[in-house]
Amino acid sequence: MIAFICILLTIAVYAVSKLVYRKMRFALLSPLLIAPCILSLMLVGVHIDYSDYDKGGRWLSNLLQPAVVGFAVPLYKFRKVMKKYAKIIAVSMSTGVFVAIIISGVFSHIVHLNDNYLLSLLPRSITTPIAMAVSVDIGGMPTMTAIFVIVTGITGLILGPAIIRSMHIQEKLAKGLLLGMGAHGAGTSKALEFGSEEGAAASLAMVLAAIITLVFAPILTPLILL
């Protein structure tokens, strides 16, 4: 029963925050930032444990799986564009993954985080299940990685459009790639707001970033720990 209430509550809070966001169009009001804050306050307020909330929440999280499968549709529609730019996409994504891993390590060193946290931060820019698998592989803490992945998603969702504007990124393909690379599924959903070609590029970026990270992360990790 409580599971069912939690599902309904989450959908209701999401729907309201989406409505508010649509009216205000202010990046910091993104439903992915506001809704979890409201829900967390509610849970703490009425003393519901996260584990109880997640009995319902899990059902919603599970829908991420068919949603990822669903990205086959924009990819299929734009397969010709993606094929035409295959080389450019491969180069951009390899660069993106390389920078993501190295820079997360460098900044972690700079703010004096210990190696456990550093390793958990390295795979943060890819989709959760694979990020967690990479985290285990390189000796991080997968649950912390999952948190870092979601915070990365929120960050990229909010800052992505500002980066696109300030860096004068005008090519649709480039917009999609940076959103999918920088903020996995959350970035991809933002890219779909820009347009379906951007969405297709972001879907591809999300998938490729995950696969390339699987290969790069174990190779780059020893370098970062030097």
């Binding site: 989450t10 959908i11 809070v13 999401y14 989406k18 993104s30 439903p31 992915l32 809704a35 979890p36 829900l39 967390s40 849970l43 703490v44 996260y50 909330y53 997640d54 929440g57 899990r58 919603l60 999280s61 599970n62 829908l63 991420l64 068919p66 949603a67 669903g70 990205f71 549709v73 924009p74 959760t128 999952a146 948190i147 979601i150 915070v151 998603g153 929120i154 969702l157 599924g185 959350a186 991809t188 959903s189 779909l192 969405g199």
Partner: peptide, 17 residues
């Protein structure tokens, strides 16, 4: 699914507490 994807991220974001 892809347009309502943010909804499916919310429970994992709440997990931060």
């Amino acid at each position: 699914l892809t347009s309502e994807m943010l909804l499916f991220f919310i429970p994992s974001a709440v997990a931060i507490i």
